[in-house]
């Protein structure tokens, strides 16, 4: 609570700038703070993800998507887009692949899975829960990556040779992440606090 008290202090009207220039003041809303916290959590999970050894490049648990799923359910699609976008950006900066091919693969995968989530969240929630959303998003993610890899990085159909492996991994990890997201959603009450 001290944090918000301090920030409330700075949010008050600024003293007039000494040399008379106008000062553009950026107000930090509660929403911004929430996005930042959630994106931090997602980046943290991205780092965990990167630390897990993988038998095949491209097969990753994608733990950060748990955050995306929870955010989608709690705060809506727009917030999920913000959190995912910031996660891709900050994650790539921290892991050192910003603007490298991996960054664009990550960006394409994330964009496609967000679009898929945007459509899939309208599925009747009585029947389809976070697990469904997670599986669909995982498939969209790997699909986007494979298409980008085929179109740009390795312009040969040989890229698709590993599709069954990637799709199988997407199904397994999608299910696991969806279950974790469902558990988080079921066991933590909705709150407006930024530190979910």
């Amino acid at each position: 609570m001290t944090r918000s008290a301090i920030e409330h202090g700075t949010e008050g009207p600024l003293p007039p700038a000494r040399d008379g220039r106008r000062v553009t003041q950026l107000t930090v809303t509660e929403e911004d703070r929430r996005v930042a916290w959630l994106a931090t959590a997602a980046v943290g999970l991205s780092l965990v993800d990167a630390a897990i050894p993988s038998p095949l490049p491209g097969v990753k648990p994608g733990l950060a998507n748990i955050v995306t799923l929870v955010v989608l359910a709690r705060y809506g699609w727009a917030t999920a887009v913000w959190v995912s976008g910031l996660r891709v950006l900050a994650g790539s900066l921290l892991l050192g692949y910003f603007l490298a091919p991996g960054f664009f693969l990550s960006l394409t995968g994330t964009t496609l899975s967000l679009l898929t989530l945007g459509l899939a969240r309208h599925l009747p929630s009585r029947w389809f829960g976070p697990v469904s959303l997670s599986i669909l998003a995982a498939f969209a993610h790997i699909g986007g990556q494979l298409l980008l890899a085929r179109a740009w990085l390795i312009p040969h159909d040989g890229v698709f040779l590993l599709t069954p492996v990637f799709a199988g991994a997407a199904l397994v990890f999608g299910t696991i992440n969806g279950l974790i997201a469902a558990k988080l959603l079921a066991e933590t009450p909705p709150s407006d606090s930024a530190d979910v």
Binding site: P124, F128, V131, S132, L171, G178, L179, A182, A186
Partner: peptide, 18 residues
């Protein structure tokens, strides 16, 4: 209990697709 009926369906369809 966290898996809803449609989730099962989607898991099956996904496995079949793979």
């Amino acid at each position: 209990a966290l898996i809803r009926p449609g989730d099962w369906l989607l898991m099956l369809v996904g496995a079949a697709l793979v």
